[in-house]
Amino acid sequence: MGNPTEINSVYWDEKTKSWQYKVVPVEEYHGYTECQHCRRPMSHNIKSEGEFKVVYVKCGCARE
């Protein structure tokens, strides 16, 4: 499996007081941090739009 070209990130929106999603393009991929419980990716270290970022995703044990 190769590096992702985009990631569907999750973030907290203060206006709506709910979780929102945003697809973030990936220029460079630098790995991920895994959840301690389900061992699936919880955040990704990427370069996007010319800057290094940490983007968060819902891990395997996150509930709706």
Rank of each mutant, 00 (worst) to 15 (best):
E27K: 12
Q20W: 00
P41G: 02
G60E: 03
M1V: 11
I46N: 00
E51S: 10
C35A: 09
M42G: 00
E6W: 03
T33C: 12
D13W: 02
V55C: 10
K15N: 11
R40H: 11
P41F: 07
D13T: 01
E27W: 11
Y32A: 13
M1I: 10
E64N: 05
V23S: 13
H30M: 14
K58I: 00
M42V: 04
N3A: 14
V10G: 02
E14W: 01
Y29P: 02
G50I: 04
S43H: 08
P25I: 14
V55Y: 09
E51M: 03
C38V: 12
Y21C: 09
F52C: 04
A62P: 00
R63M: 11
E34P: 03
C38A: 14
H37V: 12
Y32M: 12
V10T: 08
Y32N: 13
Q20S: 13
T5H: 07
E27G: 06
Y11P: 05
V54M: 08
K15T: 08
H44F: 10
P4Q: 07
Q20T: 06
V57R: 07
E14K: 05
T33E: 14
V24E: 02
V24N: 02
S48R: 00
N45S: 08
H44S: 04
Y56P: 00
E51K: 15
P25F: 14
N3C: 01
A62N: 01
E51L: 01
W12F: 15
P41M: 07
K22W: 06
R40A: 04
E51D: 05
K53L: 13
Q20D: 05
E49K: 15
V24I: 15
E27M: 09
R40S: 15
H37K: 13
G50H: 12
V55W: 08
V57L: 07
G50K: 09
V10D: 03
K47V: 15
Q36A: 14
K58W: 08
S18T: 14
E34W: 03
K58D: 08
N45Y: 14
V24F: 14
S48I: 12
E14P: 03
C38D: 09
C35N: 04
T5L: 12
N45V: 06
K17G: 04
E64H: 06
K53V: 02
Y32L: 05
N3H: 10
Y21R: 14
E51N: 11
G50W: 03
N45W: 09
W19H: 08
G60S: 07
